[in-house]
Design a protein around this nucleic acid. Structure first.
Lengths: 232, 232
DNA sequence: CGCGCTGTATGACGCGCGTCATACCGGGGA
DNA sequence: TCCCCGGTATGACGCGCGTCATACAGCGCG
C-alpha cells in the first residue's frame, strides 16, 4: 500500500489541469492536501459558500450545479477522475458560485486554496496554463449558451450526451459507452429539462435503437443518427 | 484635431480590459493599430474566420454572435465604448468562434494580434489581468447558461435588460435608461427568443408601465416590478 | 411622388414540453 | 418478510411560445 501523500502527489502530478508543477511544488501541495470521500448525492460544498479548498477527483464523478432564481438547479459540468473543480476562485479570489455535489460515490483530494495561491502567484507557467484552460472553457460556455437558448430538448439532450462522450466515452462492442453513471434526473439537469421529458426522449431513442441505457450508463448505438438530431 | 495615433493611445490606455500597460507598450500598440468604422449591421468578421486582429470600441456598439447548429444566431454579449472584443484568441492562439457585428454605426481600433501577442507574452501583469477577466466572464456565462436553460422568455428578457443596464444604464428622470440602441430582433437574439414573442412581451410591459422604448432605447420605469419577474 | 425596405405590431394556430397524477420495479432496513 | 423509497415509466391536460400571415409606420431613393 502506498503512502497517502504519495498517492496524492501522483494524482497531482498527473492532473494536466494544474499545469506544469515542479516536483517540489507537487510535493508541497501533496503534503498539505487531504483525501476526502463523498457518498452519492452528497454536497461537497454549497453554492456561495466560500470553500477554502478546491478538489481533484481521484475516482467517481462530481457535478457543478448552478442554482437558478427559479429555484431548481442546472448542472454546468461533470467532473471526472483527474479533473479539478472549484479552482476558479483561486484566480481572482472570489468564491466559486457553483455548488459541488457527488454524482456517484467519489474520492477526491482537497487542496487548500491558501496553499495553492502562493504557488499560483509564483509559478507563471501554472498561471498561463490555467488561463488557457479558462478561455477554452469560455468557448465551451458560449456553445452551451447558444444551444440552451435556442434548441429543443431533444437537441440539448443529444448535445449533452456528446459533450459527455468526449471526455468520458469509451468504445464498446456495440457503440460508444459513456462511463458516467447518471440518473434521468441528472441528465435532465444537464439539459435544462424536466425528468419526464428526458425519460420520454430517452425511451423513444431506445425504441428507435439510437441509445441503450444499462445501470445508469448510456451507450450511444447510432452515433450518426443521434448527431443528425443536432442539426434539426 | 488630435493625431490618430494619440487618439488610439488614449483609448488604449483608458481601456481597463487591456490591463496595466506601460507607456511604451501603449504607444507601441497605438502605432501599429488602426481605426476602422462599421455601419450598423455590418459584420466586422465572420464566425470561425481567423481574424488577425481584435477590437477596441471607440464609439457605438458591437455584438458577438454565436451561430447555432440550427442556423440562427444568439448574441453572447454586447460590447460598448472602451471595451475590447475578440481577444480570446490571443490567449491560446485559437481563433475567436464568435461573429462580430456592429449593432450601431461604430468606430473601433483594430489591434493586430501579432503586435499584442509578444506584449502579452512579456508582460505578466497583462496576462494576469486578462486571466482574471476571463474567470469573471466565465462566472457570468454560468449564470446565463442557467437562465437560458430554465427560464421562460419573460424572465430571460428581463435578465437581458438588467444585464445591459449594468454597464450601459444611466439614471434618467423617469427611470433607468439603457443607452444601447437595440431593435426588437437584437433583444430577441440576446434572450434566445423570436422577434414576435419579444415584441409581445415588451408591448405588455409597456402597457403595464414597466418599461418604455424610445428610438430603440429601453428605459426601465419600474425596476423592482421588473426584477420581481426574475423570481417567477 | 410612389416604391421598396426595415422595423414594429397583432391575430390565429399548433405543438412541444412543463405539470400533475399514477403505477411499476428493485434494493435496503427493521 | 413487508414496507418504504428512489428511480423509471406512461398518460392526460394546458399553456407558453414558435410559426405563419397580415398590416402599418418611417425613411431613403429614383
Amino acid at each position: 500500500m502506498t503512502e497517502p501523500v504519495d498517492e496524492i502527489r501522483g494524482a497531482i502530478e498527473a492532473a494536466t489541469s494544474l499545469g506544469p508543477l515542479t516536483e517540489a511544488d507537487a510535493y508541497e501541495l501533496a503534503r498539505m492536501a487531504t483525501v476526502a470521500e463523498s457518498a452519492r448525492g452528497e454536497s461537497i460544498w454549497l453554492s456561495g459558500a466560500r470553500a477554502d479548498f478546491f478538489g481533484l477527483v481521484l475516482s467517481g464523478f462530481v457535478k457543478m450545479v448552478k442554482g437558478t432564481p427559479a429555484g431548481q438547479g442546472v448542472t454546468a459540468e461533470i467532473i471526472g477522475p483527474g479533473q479539478v473543480f472549484g479552482m476558479l476562485g483561486v484566480v481572482d479570489g472570489k468564491g466559486c458560485p457553483l455548488m459541488a455535489q457527488a454524482v456517484t460515490a467519489a474520492r477526491y483530494v482537497r487542496i487548500p486554496k491558501s496553499v495553492f495561491q502562493p504557488l499560483y502567484a509564483r509559478n507563471s507557467a501554472v498561471r498561463e496554463h490555467i488561463a488557457v484552460r479558462s478561455t477554452s472553457r469560455l468557448r465551451q460556455a458560449f456553445d452551451t449558451m447558444a444551444l440552451m437558448s435556442t434548441g429543443r430538448v431533444e437537441q440539448r439532450l443529444a448535445a449533452v450526451l456528446f459533450t459527455l462522450a468526449e471526455p468520458y466515452g469509451r468504445n464498446a462492442p456495440d457503440g460508444l459507452l459513456i462511463e458516467v453513471p447518471l440518473t434521468r434526473q441528472d441528465m435532465a439537469d444537464l439539459a435544462g429539462a424536466t425528468v419526464e421529458t428526458t425519460i420520454r426522449t430517452l425511451s423513444r431513442w431506445q425504441s428507435q435503437g439510437l441509445v441503450r441505457t444499462d445501470h445508469r450508463r448510456v451507450t450511444i448505438l447510432a452515433e450518426k443518427a443521434l448527431a443528425a438530431l443536432l442539426e434539426g
